[in-house]
Amino acid sequence: MSTATAAEPGVEEIAAALRDFLSRQLPEGAAPQVFGLRRSGTGSSRENWPFDAVWNVDGRPVRHRLLMRRDPPAAVVDTHREREFRLLRRLADTPVPAPRVHWLDDTGEYLLRPTMIVTRYEGEAHRAVLRPADPLGLGPERQAALAERLCQTLAELHRIDVDAGGLRADLKDPGPNPAEHELTRWERELEAQELEPQPALRIAADWLRDNLPGPPERTVLVHGDFRPANVLVQDGALGVLLDWELAHLGDPLDDLGWYTAPLYAREHFIPGRWDAEDFLRRYTELTGIRVDPAALRFWQILSTFRLAVIALAGVRNFCQGGTDRPAAPADTVIRQVLAGILAAEGG
């Protein structure tokens, strides 16, 4: 494994640990074997290691397509994998196309770093899947269908009853106003991550605090990074919604603000065919949730602020040598935060 350092175990050692871990989880006599373990190019909060495993089921060897999602030495987002694992387990009983999870080594006792093992699905994710370049070769009709299916998927997610679904037991209560809760969370993260003072983001945080929307009509399960880049396209259609590290209870406009923020509008909509207005209208039809324009603007700016803080976390990790992901200055996204506020202020 080319990224391994002297302190890092090689792929053979990881594969051996994985085989032992599977032996512990499976019934006696399963005799698991691991094939093709490698680190894929994707993932920033987690390392993704695809592999196949063969073990005996009713006396016959059966091949399983699996993915090891492993904590990196330094993540750009500090996530709680046990919480994510339990959430994904609960989502298996809902219409939301979430990945199926199998096992968790929360402390890294067996797999050398905290790790969860999930089903590995066929398909491909691409952030530009809706753009005219059409990198997955869907064609205009299937692109439009996928764009609308994304809206339906977000509606399905937000229609989950967080009380009946038991989600409140696993996820933190955001308090009376999720907007205030999220702003405080990301201000604290800014405090922890900035390598140098960031007056632009401090001014933005003050503006956000002065323009908090009221509480939502209902608390929902927020994905936290809902966008075309995080859906696996299978046979030309939406297959699985990925990357649940930032999922939390909160305001439905949290996801809507991120999805409709100007920063990625070109990736999230199809101009003239499926615009932000189409998305929001359909979303309201499906959920009954009304979208207040001022509140949506707040969430668009907060989601860009959050992206800027995550970019600063990447810069910190890079400058401190804790990652092999290179990072450029976060200036562009920071300027976008202020541009959003200036637009809201009328210039």
Binding site: M1, S2, T3, R38, R39, S40, G41, T42, D324, R325, P326
Partner: peptide
């Protein structure tokens, strides 16, 4: 390596 190629592109 796919992983190293991706890092190189970044």
């Amino acid at each position: 390596s796919e992983y190293a190629r991706q890092r190189l592109r970044e």
